[in-house]
Amino acid sequence: MVAANSTQPLSITLRVWRQADARQPGKFVEYQARELSPDMSFLEMLDVVNDQLTVKGEDPIAFAHDCREGICGTCSCTINGKPHGPGRGVATCQIYMRTFRDGDVVTVEPFRAAAFPVVKDLVTDRSAFDKIQSAGGFITVRAGSAPEANGLPVPKPDADLAMDAATCIGCGACVAACKNASAMLFVAAKVSHLGLMPQGQAERDRRVLAMVGTMDELGFGNCTNYYECSAACPKLISHDFIARMNGDYLKASFRAALKPESAGASGGV
């Protein structure tokens, strides 16, 4: 049912983090956003504010966005201290103005983490995630070499659980929400998705060691099991995957230490 107040326009005060680039200091600037429709999305509200700034000759607020349907993982505002803002299991683009009350002061900050330097205003550089991915977040299979798809049955519960992990949109809210700016949920989601599938077993040890190793090098914090990550995750990915990755990492470390090395490991030359 449509909320009773859903047609009443509202006005809010925005306190937005403005920062020209990573090297320069930033500060909060206040803007008034008036006569907003409650059916407007938060990003559409920013569009409207930006158009007004443009007409006034001011620099519009830079913010990251693309699909505006909660799946691409680009949008990344911290609204009133919570990555992606009020609401559970949604991205910034899925926040609607009906969530706010007339007269609210709304503070908008970027996702804050040393590994996500600010590019401008609310836009951050999250390429660290791509680096982690390139370290091991894959199953090596070149086009043309794949076996028949139904040749390898995957138990439905495993496939479903893998899918739970695979829904990660790579937005970085887990890092932004973690009090230690740790990337464990992101890495755990990828490691678990592939590690749960029979296809992913060949590279399972190598993957978890390489991805965690790269994560550590990139300046993310360490997990202290606050579970803020999974609460802020727009896809509500469970921190149980972190436990799973911890176990995987331990086992892989053991095996790496104990396994005899093949003389042919260098290519048999």
């Binding site: 201290g81 503070t107 900050e109 804050r112 040393a114 590994a115 700016a181 740790s182 993310f220 914090g221």
Partner: peptide
């Protein structure tokens, strides 16, 4: 390490 990982600015709203 965790203190460093937040980066140069803390959140205004905790």
């Amino acid at each position: 390490e965790n203190n460093r990982a937040r980066g140069p600015e803390a959140y205004r709203i905790k």
